[in-house]
Structure formats: structure tokens, C-alpha cells
Design a protein around this nucleic acid. Sequence first.
DNA 1: AAATTCTCCTGAAGGC
DNA 2: TGCCTTCAGGAGAATT
Length: 270
Amino acid sequence: MPELPEVETTRRGIEPALRGRRVKQVVVRERRLRWPVPETLDSLLAGRRVGAVERRGKYLVLRTTNGALIVHLGMSGSLRMVPAGSAPGPHDHVDLVLGRRALRYRDPRRFGCLLWAAGDPLEHPLLRGLGVEPLEPEFDGALLHARSRGRRLAVKAFIMDASVVVGVGNIYASESLFSAGIHPQRPAGRISRERYGRLAVAIRRVLQDAIDAGGTTLRDFTGAGGEPGWFSRELRVYGREREPCVRCGAAIRRRVIGQRSSFYCPRCQR
DNA sequence: AAATTCTCCTGAAGGC
DNA sequence: TGCCTTCAGGAGAATT
């Protein structure tokens, strides 16, 4: 499932093949994604040159001179370069054809989206209210501490709130809280500034490590290769219910918080 | 206002 | 072996 590191790895993988290239044609085979792919996408993009390929949270933004394409990979989405005209698989919903190659969007569960922003894409309704980027300097413990005052929801739900900080998905939320020694269900407003400092460091570290790991598989985005090695990440608590904690040996527990599975060590995390 | 629940969809995993 | 059921999950929308 694409989390921020996977989205960033995707961005780095496709950017060299897109930047400065002209879109020849947009082929939409299935427009029923989270929101319908705009009917006008081909007329908007055909003949346009792609500028910067940016990431905001888990959204990708492909800028052109007359607007921007906003892409979200949802749960199961992927983008990769393929030879133009190559046979699409069952869930290959959209191609952006650029000469001899094409950017292919695949999304079996169709939780993702491709949308058009005519103006500033950062002012698009989906991006406008997003919180701070976790890898930018302004993200720190002081920010988390300030934003959490008076809030009683579980800290895990709090750090997964995209209006606070973007890109902290379910897996990395569990991993970060383990790193920082904070119980996922502790009320967000009852955590000290000092502990939030440790949490901010943990979040940044876990995301950056995953991006660094993803960097080694960049070539897979433009070649014919198989699945990038994203899944070989070392997860210390996620998916390890009843297995021993790597730090203290206690059995890892699973609990549903805000409809999401959360994994934690009952001894190390308070 | 804040917090919780619902919703989209399909592949994978588990049960019998 | 194979069919059927259950579940996970990003994040906006709806509801409490």
C-alpha cells in the first residue's frame, strides 16, 4: 500500500521520464476511480509539456503550462513507465502517452484518483487543507504539541490526521510510536512536549529510512522489472501480533483504533 | 467543534 | 481442490 515513502519513490522514478516531455494522448480505459477521471483530460493534456513532478503528502502533482494533474495512488495504485502501445493489464486504467513511452496508472481497488486542477494545484480542495510535510524543517515536536492541546483522541489517530501532518499512514504510525515509546491509545492532548519531540524525530526517521530503501529500486519504475522492493522494510511491530518485542521480548499486541489495526508493545509503550 | 462511523473496491487469507 | 466469507486499508463524506 503506497505510503509517503512509496509515493516519493514513485515521484523520483517517473520524474526523469516525464519532465520536459510532451503528452501525445491520454487513454482512459476505466474512469470510475474514487472520483471519475475527467472526460476532458485528453483535450486538456494532449500537446502539453510536463513540467515539475511534485509531491504533496501522498498526492503527486504533474504540472503543465495550463494546469496540473493531481494523482493519488489510494491503496493499491501504481505508476510506471511502459512502452507506448503495450498491452494493458486488467487494472491498467489510464495511460499518458508521451512518444515511445507511456506513464501507466494501475489501481486494482480504484481507491485512487486522477483529477485536473486548472489553477494553482496547491489550492485545490484536496490539497488546500493539508498539514505540514513531515520531512520539512517546520515539522517538529513543538508543532505536534501545540496542535494537540485540548484534544482527547488517541495519539495514533492524531498523527494520522492529514490536516496536522501529511503522509503518516497506518503502518508508519505504529512504527513511529513504537520508536518513541508512546502508547498508541494515549490521548493526544496528554503527551508532553518532550515526548512529542521524540515522536517527531521517529516519524521523520522512519519515513526517511523507507525512502532511502526505496531509492535502490528506482530502476524498476522505468524498466520492465517486477515489483519494487518496498515490502522488504523491516517492521518492528506492524503485523507482529503475539510475536516478541524486539526490544523487551513482551508479546506485541494488536488493537483497533479508529477503525485501523494498531500494533504496539504493552511494556515499551506508555 | 471534535470525534466517530461509513464508504468506495478487490486481492489475499482463512474456513470448511 | 475449490468455493465462500471475511478483512484490510486512504481519506473524504456523513453522522453523532
